[in-house]
Simulated assay, not measured.
Amino acid sequence: MSYAVSAALQSAVFAAVASDIAVGDAVGDAVYDALPSGALPSIYISIGPETVKVADDMTGSGAIHNFVVSVVTDVPGFFAAKEVAGAVCDVLHDADLTLNRGTLVSLRFERARAIKIDKGTGRRIDLTFRARTEDN
């Protein structure tokens, strides 16, 4: 198992989401790995936490990455956040991303959790994806 492919996976995920036309129409360039200082836009995407476990097999070393992409908004109601979450899923589910290290074997949507935040005035949808990588 190698965690070394994790940065390459994150870079590819970020690039795919940030360059998608539908996502850009919804959030502009508000796709973040680290939140910027100062005021945040009313809706944005954050590439978030990840857990990784070994997935070695007879052909070599590999890993299963479960990572979260969050859609966050201060807009009341879930509709706007769900539209953006759907666009993110369209980009990532079954995506064929090229990594600068290793190989992406599969990328699948696993689950979502939609919650109220900021005392009920905002919304957050956490999308969990499962990626299988191999380190060549």
Rank of each mutant, 00 (worst) to 15 (best):
G28Y: 04
D25T: 06
D94A: 10
Y32R: 06
D74L: 09
S37C: 06
D33R: 13
A39C: 13
L107P: 07
S46P: 07
L40F: 07
A30Q: 09
G38I: 01
I64E: 08
Y44A: 08
A85W: 00
V105N: 07
N100G: 07
T103F: 05
V88C: 00
F109T: 00
V52S: 13
H93F: 11
S61T: 15
V54E: 15
G62V: 08
A30M: 06
E83C: 11
M58G: 15
V27D: 05
Y44W: 09
A87K: 12
N100K: 09
N100S: 12
H93M: 09
D57C: 09
R113C: 11
V27I: 10
G38T: 01
T73Y: 08
G48E: 03
P41A: 10
N66K: 09
S70F: 01
L97Y: 01
F78A: 01
T103G: 05
F109P: 00
A26T: 11
K53D: 14
D74T: 08
P41L: 09
V69T: 10
D94G: 04
G24R: 12
R101K: 13
L99M: 06
D56R: 11
T98E: 15
I43A: 08
R101F: 06
P41Y: 09
G86Y: 13
L97G: 04
V75R: 12
V91H: 04
V69L: 04
R101Y: 09
H65D: 10
H65N: 10
P36S: 06
A112F: 00
E83G: 06
S61V: 14
A39E: 09
K82Y: 11
H93K: 09
A85Y: 00
M58H: 12
M58A: 11
K53L: 13
S37M: 14
D57Y: 07
L107K: 03
G28Q: 03
G48V: 02
I47G: 00
E110I: 05
G62I: 13
L97Q: 03
M58T: 13
P36D: 13
L40M: 14
G38N: 01
R108T: 00
H93G: 05
V27H: 06
P49E: 12
D96L: 14
A39Q: 14
H65V: 01
G62A: 12
